[in-house]
Amino acid sequence: MRLRVEYEKGQELKYLSHLQMMRLVERVLRRADLPYALSEGFNPRIKLSLGTVLPVGIWGLREYFDLELTSHLESRHFMERAQAAAPMGFRIRRAMSVPFEVPSLQAQINTAVYCLVVGDEAGRAEVGEVIQSILEQRELVVRSRGKKPREKDLRPGIYQLHGSVLDGRLEVTAVVASGSSQNVRPDELVDGLKSRGLSYEIIDIYRWGNLIKQGDGYRSPLNDEKVELCSGR
């Protein structure tokens, strides 16, 4: 069977790279002695695939992986066993069986929601103006942080942008394109906010979630449920 798992990569793990997260998950699965399937060949590996890359330094509330199992296992049992073998900061939120026909996470996920935490609540007015300025204009050109240094227009990839106060902290929430065809990186987003006059420091960034955008609606990669955006954590 194929299992799709939603997990949190906590603050504690934010410095781990994609590859290190992969290794972490593999070790959790082995410690939990789950019936994982292995690839063939000289170097057998667990048939596991992680969703979109989360940049080093950023933690995530709703991240995903797909896993192939050799026998049936209730999601509930999977979650209990895997959680018991997990390091601090790795929390399994939900798991669901998905048919093999469902495309891979990397093929499905096309949207990310980033939350940029601004140091000071006093920045409310300024943040409001910066957001306003970005939304009003057609372009938001920054230098790409990718491999090729070039000018890049983030604006078409910014679907939503708003500020809010959560637990007494000021946050900018950005719903942006994510994936191979169009991608807005969180560090580019910071550059974009700064280019429009943000003077406050961004003290933390996390990814609220990964989504599948269909028209104007957003769905969860886990169960195709419609997602109401940003109703708290």
Binding site: E12, Y15, V56, P87, M88, G89
Partner: peptide, 19 residues
């Protein structure tokens, strides 16, 4: 440390918290 760690190579060398 929170300010320094994002700016060094392999910050996980300095955080602890391993399994």
């Amino acid at each position: 440390l929170r300010q320094i760690l994002p700016r060094v190579q392999k910050p996980a060398r300095y955080t602890g918290g391993e399994y």
